[in-house]
């Protein structure tokens, strides 16, 4: 009976450590562009799309390229593996997940955030005079 409790607690402790380790490992921190440049870890950056600079989708490599400006005003060139995300044009904020390598940010995932105009009365106004 005692042995079972010992084995049980060792197993549970093992699972907790394993879980906590995976959690820390997979937790992708929000950083600024400046911080992203200093680390080789996978990070995420929130920013705005710099519309004045070039942005295009390259079909041959299946990459979408654009420039991102963070809250500090730093700008980085982003190479995203994949198509231009849906709703990219009207996103108020863009979140990119990936790594900074040799002057560019290699993004694996883009999330787009919208101004909360859903359910707003603006859409109703077109009917009112």
């Amino acid at each position: 009976m005692k042995l079972k409790i010992v084995v049980g607690s060792v197993l549970i402790a093992g699972f907790i450590i394993f879980g906590a380790y995976s959690f820390m490992e997979s937790n992708v921190k929000y950083v600024t562009i400046e911080e992203a440049k200093k680390t080789t870890r996978k990070v995420q950056i929130v920013g705005e799309w710099v519309k004045e600079k070039e942005s295009y989708y390259d079909a041959r490599t299946n990459q979408f390229i654009f420039y991102l400006k963070d809250d500090n005003g730093d700008v980085v060139k982003v190479v995203h593996n994949g198509a231009k995300p849906n709703n990219f044009e009207i996103a108020s904020h863009v979140v990119v997940k990936g790594r900074y390598v040799d002057g560019i940010f290699e993004s694996q995932e883009i999330l787009t955030k919208f101004p909360s105009k859903y359910q707003s009365a603006d859409a109703l106004k077109q009917y009112q005079n």
Binding site: S22, F23, E25, S26, N27, Y30, K42, K97
Partner: peptide, 23 residues
Amino acid sequence: SPIITKILQGKASAVDVSYYNKT
């Protein structure tokens, strides 16, 4: 994880999908 990181680090961030696959 957004709640946990918010409490621990002050800024909410989600775990990567790899976390679920790994565990």
